[in-house]
Each structure stands twice: as C-alpha cells, then as structure tokens.
C-alpha cells in the first residue's frame, strides 16, 4: 500500500483517536466487522469446492471469531458506550452482515474476486492497525491486543495472495488483475455510497425533525395516547377478500 495512504490514515487517526467516544466506537465497529467476517468466511468454507481453500477459509473464520471476542472484551473493559449498545455488545449481537440479501459475500463475488477482496481488506486492516500501534494511539492493552492478532492477519492476507499468484502462474493473470482492480474500485465506491447514505440519513433526519417541529404541534392536542384496559377490536367492514389484500 502506498505511503500516501499510510500518512493519510496517520493524520486522520491522530485527530480521531483523540475525539471523545471515538476509540470505543471504532473498536466496536472492528469487533462487528470481525464477527461478520467470521460468518462470511464460514459461508465461503461451505460454498467452495476447493478442499484446500475450504480448510483455509475455515481456519480464517475461526481466527475472526476469536478476534471478535478480543475486540468485544476491550470495548466492554473501556466502557463509555450507552447502556443499550453495551447490552447488545455484551449479548454478542451482530447488527448486520453474514448473508445479505440472500447471498453470502462469497456467492456474490465468486472465488477469484472473493480472494482478491479478502487479500485487499485484510491488508488494509493490517495497515490501519500498524498505524495505530506505531503512533501509540490506543491504550496499552488495546495495542497489545492488536499486536496479538497481527500474525493472524498476516496469514489472512498471505494465503489469498498466494492463491492469486498461483492463478497468475496458470495464465490467469489478467483475471487476477481485473479482480484486484474491481475489488479496490468497489471498496472506494462502497465507501462513497456509505458516506452518501450517512449524509442522506442525517439530512432526512433534519428534514423530518423540522417537519415534526412545525407540523405536529397544531395536532398534538388532538392525538391521545391510548387508554389501558380492554377495547373492542377494530371492525373491518370490507369483504374479507378485499381486506386480506389490503396493507391497511
């Protein structure tokens, strides 16, 4: 990876790690990503028809599961997240990931792109963790934890790379290059989309808050919280065939 990227990560991290609440948020996100990755790798191990890769995906999955526990333990030890989030973390809840939209990551990408993805994503993680450790941004226990998982992460970048090199030797160099390019491009694209969605979310919330503040007050006297106790069920006068098709 380029020196430019490292410097960039370094500069951003120097600021972000000092923001209150940020380290825990970041560690939570890493923990969630590791857990999601556990399921992604397990799904790949299930779906691939290559015995050697199946074993590697499986071992990789087990590493990720362990890493997720390390991250969760750090998050719980550092505290500083709200109660609801802490309870979710404590219960080991996964907010999303695994099989999404009916397909696992492996099924969506196919073998070569999946390998390229794993290699690129893991290399980026190593780079990020190294910057954090070199600059001594996290607390000492977290640094020790990151250093503990680093050898695993190196295995996670090495075997897909080795596999891609093998394909190159088989004359599939062009395919491999395309896959690597596509994966990197997609990661940029998805980063932008994520940003776009986040901006969208914030802006929508702002609009909705304005709507709430302006439009609801006149009606707030008309709305009443339901009283307790038994009430007669709402009678639907429509024929059943019509009512059954209705969303309301």
């Amino acid at each position: 990876m380029g020196r430019f990227r490292q410097t960039w990560i370094g500069l951003v991290s120097e600021v972000s790690w000092r923001l209150p609440g940020w380290p825990v948020k970041l560690l939570t996100a890493f923990g969630q990503a590791e857990r999601g990755s556990f399921y992604d790798m397990l799904a790949a191990a299930e779906a691939t028809d290559r015995p050697d890769l199946r074993r590697k995906y499986f071992e990789h999955a087990l590493d990720e599961s362990q890493h997720a526990i390390y991250f969760r333990d750090r998050v719980m030890a550092l505290g500083g997240i709200d109660r609801a989030r802490a309870a979710m973390e404590e219960a080991g809840a996964l907010t999303s990931r695994g099989i999404v939209g009916g397909e696992s990551l492996y099924e969506r990408l196919g073998e070569i792109d999946f390998l390229a993805f794993v290699h690129v994503a893991e290399a980026e993680a190593i780079e990020q963790f190294s910057v954090y450790c070199d600059r001594e941004l996290p607390d000492p226990e977290t640094i020790a934890m990151l250093q503990k998982i680093m050898p695993d992460e190196k295995f996670h970048t090495a075997y897909p790379l080795h596999e891609l090199e093998q394909r190159r030797k088989q004359g599939k160099g062009k395919q491999v290059d395309t896959a690597l390019r596509r994966v990197k491009w997609n990661r940029l694209k998805e980063g932008w989309l994520r940003f776009s969605r986040d901006v969208g979310h914030v802006m929508s919330s702002v609009w909705l808050f304005l709507l709430y503040a302006i439009l609801i007050p006149p009606f707030s006297l008309l709305g009443k919280v339901e009283r307790g106790g038994w009430q007669a069920p709402r009678r639907d006068r429509r024929p059943l065939a019509v009512a059954a098709r209705s969303q309301g």
């Binding site: 969630q32 999601g36 990931r97 999404v100 990551l105 994503a121 993680a125 996670h156 980063g191």
Partner: peptide, 8 residues
C-alpha cells in the same frame, strides 16, 4: 477483514 464496506 473489514467487510463493513460490503453494500447490499
């Protein structure tokens, strides 16, 4: 591995 970036 930061699969956070996988879009639906």
């Amino acid at each position: 591995m930061a699969s956070v970036s996988q879009a639906q």
